[in-house]
């Protein structure tokens, strides 16, 4: 009974992926058959290369990889420094400052759209990598989870390292970071997922094809499909190759992701 319920739930959650794969392998002539077949009559790999050519996906891929890679690394690096400072370095009125940073989690990013667009226009950053990356770096969430984690590190260890003459930067790099792997991995995955999937900000800040990222490429194909110039088998092939890298990554790191977030956000 429980098993049946589980299988039905998983079927519902997995159906979109199944349909995406099946459609991406169908022959163009099979798409218009009503009712649609549940399996392709033959595997038609050409859809993938055709979809790749239907829009400049090579460029979109490069842009997405570059933007999310750099933004994630920068976000985590700066969050590490900030979280470490709040957790383990003396400073007056530290708690108030920390609250000021954490309170930004309550501010919807959408509130910042218009002002940041204007600011970036003034900086001449519209339609540039800097415009895509720099405003997306500072985020309170990784600061919060890493701060929670660093607070739980054994004090004696930090003090012993201090006594040995190690500076904060070295303690961060050689003690705090290696001891915080699960939380760090989780924070990096959340960050990467957010940047890879981001749609609204790139939509506003880019205006030429050469700066577009993958979500915008998907939206572009959707428009083409509405006009009837691109078929659903190609759209689904594009959806598959856009989704694949993150899906593979998470299949391996899923456990660490959940445990890291639980540890950072719920405990302590």
């Amino acid at each position: 009974m429980a098993y049946l319920l589980l299988v039905i739930s998983i079927f519902m959650l997995g159906l979109p992926f199944f349909w995406m794969l099946v459609t991406s392998l169908k022959l163009p002539t099979e798409i218009n058959v009503y009712p649609p077949a549940w399996l392709p009559s033959e595997i038609h790999w050409n859809n993938y290369s055709d979809a790749w050519d239907a829009a400049p996906f090579g460029r979109f891929y490069l842009n997405s990889a570059l933007v999310s890679g750099v933004a994630t690394i920068a976000q985590i690096a700066l969050a590490l420094l900030m979280a470490y400072a709040f957790a383990l370095i003396q400073f007056p009125a530290k708690t108030a400052l920390l609250l000021l940073v954490l309170s930004t989690m309550m501010i919807p990013d959408e509130m910042k759209l218009v002002p940041n667009f204007i600011l970036l226009t003034k900086l001449g950053w519209i339609d540039t990598y800097a415009g895509l990356i720099v405003p997306a770096i500072a985020h309170a969430f990784p600061v919060f989870v890493l701060y929670q984690q660093f607070r739980q590190l054994p004090r004696s260890l930090i003090e012993a390292a201090h006594a040995d003459g190690a500076g904060h930067l070295r303690i961060l790099w050689q003690i705090a970071v290696p001891m915080s792997r699960p939380v760090l991995t989780a924070a990096a995955l959340v960050s990467l997922l957010g940047h890879w999937n981001a749609y609204l900000w790139p939509l506003i800040i880019t205006n030429t094809g050469s700066m577009r990222t993958l979500p915008l490429g998907i939206a572009y194909l959707r428009k083409q499909a509405e006009e009837g110039s691109v078929q659903w088998n190609l759209l689904m092939a594009a959806a598959v190759f856009v989704v694949l890298p993150i899906v593979i990554l998470y299949t391996f790191a899923q456990k660490q992701f959940v445990e890291g977030i639980m540890r950072g956000a719920l405990k302590g």
Partner: peptide, 15 residues
Amino acid sequence: AFLPHVTMTAAAALV
């Protein structure tokens, strides 16, 4: 069960 969360929303919406 976890896949829908990590799937790019734009692509999922298309599906």
